[in-house]
């Protein structure tokens, strides 16, 4: 399976041509890093891939066993928010998102996963409302939601924001596991390329007002 983007163009009105005829492919088990300065279009590109934003021209599809699919299951990690229900606990949030996907919720597996991410206190994980969490805790919960999903394509926008060093290491360890499970991963960051070097397969740099260039 591979995700194919062909001749993608997008502009905000007349004053910002973000990318013009951008093309790339990501195979299963690969991780594409999208870099660029602030305002270069990283979030916009990920939102387009997530289906949350229309684009001016181009084609996005998944190729699998010779067939092409324009609609495909994916998970998206937002940059400025976490997609959580703040009055519910971490466990209730995860259970909801997994239930909607038809995935069986195993409490032991979830608790083990939660402990790995630093939710060692069962009260904090099962009973405390998410609105009481810190920024980093919310981000980790959001990452748990994305990583537990069975969607084959993961779109991560600035996933390292708010994470401490231990969590960053855990994040990269999880990414390696997901790559082994043949997921397609696309992540963006405005820096921290050095941290991501070990896991990324390809890099794509977006520059404002210029055609995006692909760097191997």
């Amino acid at each position: 399976m591979k995700l194919c983007v062909k001749n993608l163009s997008f502009s905000y009105g007349f004053y910002s041509q973000l990318f013009d005829h951008l093309s790339f492919e990501v195979e299963e088990g690969e991780c594409l890093f999208i870099g660029g300065a602030n305002g270069s279009g990283k979030t916009t590109l990920l939102r387009i891939l997530a289906g949350l934003q229309d684009f001016s021209s181009g084609n996005i599809h998944v190729e699998r066993a010779g067939k092409f699919f324009s609609r495909f299951p994916r998970e998206y990690l937002q940059t400025e928010s976490n997609g959580l229900f703040c009055h519910l606990s971490a466990f209730q949030n995860l259970r909801f998102w997994l239930d909607t996907q038809g995935q069986k919720v195993n409490l032991d597996t979830l608790s083990k996963e939660a402990c790995e991410w630093g939710f060692t206190n069962p009260f904090v994980f099962k009973s405390l409302a998410v609105k009481r969490f810190s920024t980093g805790m919310k981000k980790k919960l959001s990452l748990m939601r994305v990583f537990l999903s069975e969607a084959p394509i993961l779109l991560l926008d600035e996933p390292l924001n708010g994470l401490d060093e231990t969590s960053c290491h855990l994040f990269f360890k999880k990414l390696e596991q997901l790559k082994e499970r043949k997921k397609i991963i696309i992540l963006s960051s405005h820096g921290r390329l050095g941290l991501c070097e070990k896991v990324i397969s390809h890099k794509l740099f977006l520059s404002s007002f210029e055609e995006a260039r692909r760097v191997e």
Partner: peptide, 10 residues
């Protein structure tokens, strides 16, 4: 917390 967008993607 913008759960709307996650619902739209899922």
């Amino acid at each position: 917390d913008n759960a709307f967008e996650v619902l739209r993607v899922s």
